[in-house]
Design a binder for these strands. Sequence first.
DNA 1: CGAGTTCTTGATCCTACTCAAGAAGCGTGG
DNA 2: CCACGCTTCTTGAGTAGGATCAAGAACTCG
Lengths: 248, 248
Amino acid sequence: MSLSTSDRSLLEPAIRRLNALRPLSTEARTALEYALLEGLQRAGSAEDLISEGDPVDSVRLVLSGWLCRYKTLEDGRRQIVNFIFPGESCDAHAFLLSVMDHSIAAMTQVVYSEIKRARFEALVAGDRSLAEAFWCETLVNNAIQREWAINLGRRVALERVAHLFCEIFERLRPVGMVEGNSCIMPVTQMDLADATGLSVVHLNRTVQELRSSGLIVLRERTLTINDLDALKDAALFSPSYLQLYRRG
Amino acid sequence: MSLSTSDRSLLEPAIRRLNALRPLSTEARTALEYALLEGLQRAGSAEDLISEGDPVDSVRLVLSGWLCRYKTLEDGRRQIVNFIFPGESCDAHAFLLSVMDHSIAAMTQVVYSEIKRARFEALVAGDRSLAEAFWCETLVNNAIQREWAINLGRRVALERVAHLFCEIFERLRPVGMVEGNSCIMPVTQMDLADATGLSVVHLNRTVQELRSSGLIVLRERTLTINDLDALKDAALFSPSYLQLYRRG
DNA sequence: CGAGTTCTTGATCCTACTCAAGAAGCGTGG
DNA sequence: CCACGCTTCTTGAGTAGGATCAAGAACTCG
């Protein structure tokens, strides 16, 4: 059995990202690729992959599409606490805990791979580089979550939205989802509001402010950043927490 | 060489907490205890243990005292993104990443133990239960960070402060730092403001609202929660994210 | 083409911020 | 033990950033 070209291109972003976090051995890479191909799944837009309170017994790795992690309060208030992009895992090792503390929803059509607990454990037990890559992933995730705390707690609306756009752009870049100064932005303004802790109305006005100052163009589900440095300045954005250049 | 009684009582909260996350083997426990005793350190109140941008090459485990993780913006705005309590580690495996993305400050006198990278790696490589306990710790930390996102993004001031008090109380309980319905609260209102994303003035007014409604007493660096259930209701607090009862 | 989202705009309200200053607490040194 | 300075807490007054309410426009999609 060997991998076809289409298999390779499907897996490529995920493998590339893990490999950037921690160089994978050839064997680990191959073992992972086969495991991924065996567990392929699809989810439709707006579908919940897993919900708060659900038990976890597998690891999902996203191959294409956008997802988000979110939590809700009893009265319906909702906060998107993070996005999940291709190459990222939904819940590596999360089965060590009993249940999900949050929900994960697909925001677009999604292709992912589900690896059962035992299989995943065997994979990471068999190769140190793979275990470390997943470790790193969790740590980076943690760092992003901390940055979201300061975003929600201390930045004003304009900075907050600008920061979110910068982060999305920089996270999409290494998985090949940025072209020139544009990337897809397949989410509604309500989603952006829930990610920035703003009301939809105020998010809309803030986006328009960014538009009219010429920093961004956002239309037809595409975000174009005219002047990334200027947007970063407006956002007080400093990308080190993303650990993108660990090996540079 | 054997452990004295005072050694044991010093290490007890940390060991107990790790053990609650994942039952430790006797050998792992002993090996960890010796490593901890060899790396004992102290830090004074308001001292930074490590700062954003610093390289990391060791793991610190807190034995007594309170710390916080915080980030700052260029113009001085500061957000405390989490607290660190006895039994928790500052940066398990953080050396897998290049540098700290945030700072860690002591809020009281702190006793902690520093384990150098190689030593730590040998410890977790030698015992699966220990590795898993530290894994779990990171995952719980991650979950707490997510809850902070919804706290900062979607709860109003009163809920936010009430939620913080509930969380602190529930996190201090399993390490024996709660007596009756009281726990220490050795932080200034400015710190609480930075943790809740509020201004000092508004935090103060919010605390007074909680006081005058009879929910809490906060004086002389002690927090007393008169009616925990009522406070939880006011905070929309649901403790499952803390994973306190994983084995129950 | 029609119904349901999503986006946009206007008007009003209110939560939380800022500025300012006094009170209380606390540590240090005389 | 008290005086002094510094930090922390508290209160008042005015402001503003962002929420809410409401309704129309533009876009999807069956």
